[in-house]
Amino acid sequence: MLEARLEQANLLKKVVDAIKDLVQDCNFDCNDSGIALQAMDNSHVALVSMMLKSESFSPFRCDRNIALGINLTSLTKVLRAAQNEDILTLKAEDAPDVVNLVFESAESDRISEYDIKLMDIDQEHLGIPETEYAATISMPSAEFQRICRDLMALSESVSIECSKEGVKFACQGDIGSGSVTLRSHTNVDKPEMNVEIDLTEPVSLTFSLKYLVGFCKASSLSGQVKLCLSNEVPLLVEYALANNSYLRFYLAPKIGD
């Protein structure tokens, strides 16, 4: 059986909120290392990969592999009933028909309990090869969100060019063009404001802004976001969570004109 207790419902609320517009029905794969999710969007150009390590829960118990097939719209409806600071416990039997969610208020004696019916989801699993990326950029997640939103006002696509000079986000649209360039930057007092560019070779790729703006819904989960780029491979956008847990998005590049 599964029993996983989160100190704050907020974490799961934010994760689900960040991915629910990209993917609808997902298997939450539970085993003794934690709860993982991998799902592609309908057009097969974006993939979300979530890992909530067992250390992110206290306690965490999962005796055998359990796949919880959950519709994220349904999960969102139930999670709305949880306060951000509630303690959230997920429970399921070994061959479950439902997943049970319990929300406990730390301040009052209120306990709420919901069951969500599970779905049988036949989901393809993709193996993502280990990649040595040509460029890795760590930057404030709010800055990345702002750049994507600002450029989306002009264009559907953004080119991300990474060189010794820094990283340049540029777009061209009907009304004109725009770009934002960031250089490496260290803020000793506020490390969350750091921009770190790790470059082995220059790289330039074009991506759909609609998807990037969607990924940025995860910004509240982490002060920093990591962008990993190599020519002709999908972009990795990673939001690191506590205890080595993470929320990652992959996006296929746009090719040709």
């Binding site: 993939l47 993709l126 992959y250 296929a252």
Partner: peptide, 14 residues
């Protein structure tokens, strides 16, 4: 118009 290959071109089905 630019196109996007789907992710099956990059990742392996397991």
């Amino acid at each position: 118009a630019p196109f996007q290959k789907d992710l099956y071109n990059y990742f392996i089905k397991t």
